[in-house]
């Protein structure tokens, strides 16, 4: 029986399942022993090693056997693939767009038009766009591969992400506590990319030291958001605890964004960039800088409004869940 034991252990090594590994090994061992016994009976003797070898040979290599049990032959399976494609497109377009803006700002602020520095920045910028797009795609793939492996089959179906609207869905009254999985996954992806951006994994020339002081706080909010979303994906429904976490998180967002809104020079052209502006175009630069500042202001206000809406939504959900009881 030694060989069967070794064989079973070898299959176990190749299993990629999280739970039930021992069960599989135990079941496989008992099956192989049954088969061996049956063969020995047929041949009218007791099982010997040659018989064992023959049996294991027929059963297949441990690697092959383990593969039949391994639940995820896909990196990203068909169930979430449509959503993956949709989000990948959005992420690629928005990062390429964002990095192009960054490059244009650099071109305007750092060089006299068409000088040698101009082509240099253009070249660097295009390289930067390419590498950012590639690493952003990497993040999206990574996040979806994790979701593929951690979120249970139940609930997520192709229909959730189907663009075709089904009139029958009107008839069903939606459960007010159920979560929108597509929305959650999108939120995880964008929060993750947000984390990468504010921690300057991509090159962003507009963050000041003042901004960097806020980064740990923003990180805390973003990480909470991702953890909460992953938890909700698994749980599929909102409950009191998750709603309270959500409310606290949105409140934190509002506080941080408000403080940043009233802190001067949080996001601006850094001193080095300003140094490089040639004298002649300083007036134009001032206009660009002002437009940029207003853009930043609007962005903070949008963040505060969105967070407030989310906070109110969560609070209403919380109150309703108690009044319904």
């Amino acid at each position: 029986m030694k060989l069967i034991d070794r064989y079973v252990t070898e299959v176990g090594k190749h299993l990629l399942v999280f739970k039930g590994r021992e069960d599989i090994e135990k079941e496989l061992r008992s099956t192989l022993e049954d088969m061996l016994e049956e063969r020995a009976e047929k041949q009218g003797g007791s099982a010997d090693e040659a018989m064992e070898i023959e049996l294991l040979k027929e059963y297949g290599s441990p690697d092959e056997v383990a593969t039949t049990y391994n639940p995820h032959p896909y990196l990203i399976g068909p169930r979430i693939f449509p959503l993956f494609l949709k989000i990948l497109k959005i992420v690629l377009l928005s990062t390429a767009f964002g990095m192009t803006i960054v490059m244009i700002i650099e071109l305007i602020t750092q060089t006299p038009l068409m000088g040698s520095e101009f082509t240099e920045i253009l070249g660097d910028g295009l390289g930067n766009i390419l590498s950012t797009v590639i690493s952003a795609s990497g993040y999206v793939v990574l996040i979806f591969a994790i979701i593929e492996r951690t979120v249970p089959d139940l609930g997520i179906s192709k229909e959730d992400f189907d663009e075709k609207w089904d009139p029958a869905s009107l008839a069903k009254e939606p459960d007010p506590n159920s979560v929108n999985r597509g929305e959650l996954i999108a939120e995880i992806v964008f929060t993750f990319i947000g984390l990468a951006i504010i921690n300057e994994i991509f090159y962003i020339p507009v963050f000041s030291d003042t901004f960097r002081r806020f980064v740990p706080w923003i990180n805390a909010v973003f990480v909470t958001e991702i953890l909460l979303d992953i938890y909700l994906l698994r749980k599929a429904v909102w409950d009191t605890a998750t709603r309270i976490v959500k409310i606290a998180m949105e409140a934190g967002t509002i506080v941080i964004a408000s403080i940043m809104l009233y802190t001067p020079n949080v996001i601006t052209f850094s001193a080095e960039i300003l140094k490089n502006i040639p004298e002649s175009s300083s007036a134009d630069i001032e206009i660009v800088a002002r437009i940029f500042d207003i853009g930043v202001l609007i962005a903070f206000i949008v963040v505060i409004i969105v967070a407030s809406i989310e906070l109110v939504k969560a609070a209403i959900g919380l109150i309703r869940s108690y009044t319904r009881k």
Partner: peptide, 8 residues
Amino acid sequence: GTLYPLLR
């Protein structure tokens, strides 16, 4: 190789 994983 088909039956056991199917049962699981």
